[in-house]
């Protein structure tokens, strides 16, 4: 029961590891960015899960129902900001990849390394 109850968090950990693995293991720069996105997405889920309260409803203040339980809106707001940051990172990363592709003719990291080493 406990394991199932913490399902979100298990998924967070799984996604986080998969994402990090992709960043480290793949040589393709685009795949690295994808991995980074997965990694960040796991954190987003973490935050969103934190805000959930059992039986809670959308945090819209109701005057005539003072006993209503609301979900905590703050983590959601926070993560909205973090998502924006993530999008900025992704677009910058992709823009860099386009420039790298133009400069080196490849987006495989090991090939780029080879070119760099040859130059030196």
């Amino acid at each position: 029961m406990k394991i199932l109850g913490l399902f979100n968090y298990w998924m967070v950990i799984l996604l986080m590891l998969v994402g990090l693995y992709m960043v480290i293991a793949s040589s393709n720069l685009v795949k690295k960015i994808v991995g980074l996105n997965l990694f960040q997405a796991s954190v987003f889920i973490l935050y969103i899960s934190l805000g959930k309260i059992l039986g809670g409803t959308a945090p819209i203040f109701l005057k005539n129902a003072p006993d209503t339980v609301y979900s905590n809106p703050l983590p959601h707001v926070l993560i909205l900001t973090a998502i924006v940051v993530g999008v900025a990172m992704t677009s910058l990363g992709l823009a860099l990849i386009i420039r790298i592709r133009k400069a080196y003719g490849t987006i495989e990291e090991d090939e780029i390394l080879e070119i760099e080493n040859k130059q030196q």
Binding site: L20, V23, L29, K32, L36, F39, Q40, V43, L46, Y47, L50, P75, L78, A82, V85, M89, L92, G93, L96, I97, R99, I100, A103, Y104, E109, I112, E116
Partner: peptide, 23 residues
């Protein structure tokens, strides 16, 4: 370009770790 990209990867991982910690 490639240096900046590497920094981007490392930097984002670092920042995301910070984000997890704060969360």
């Amino acid at each position: 370009l490639i240096s900046s990209f590497r920094y981007l990867i490392m930097g984002t991982i670092g920042a995301t770790f910070l984000l997890i910690g704060i969360g």
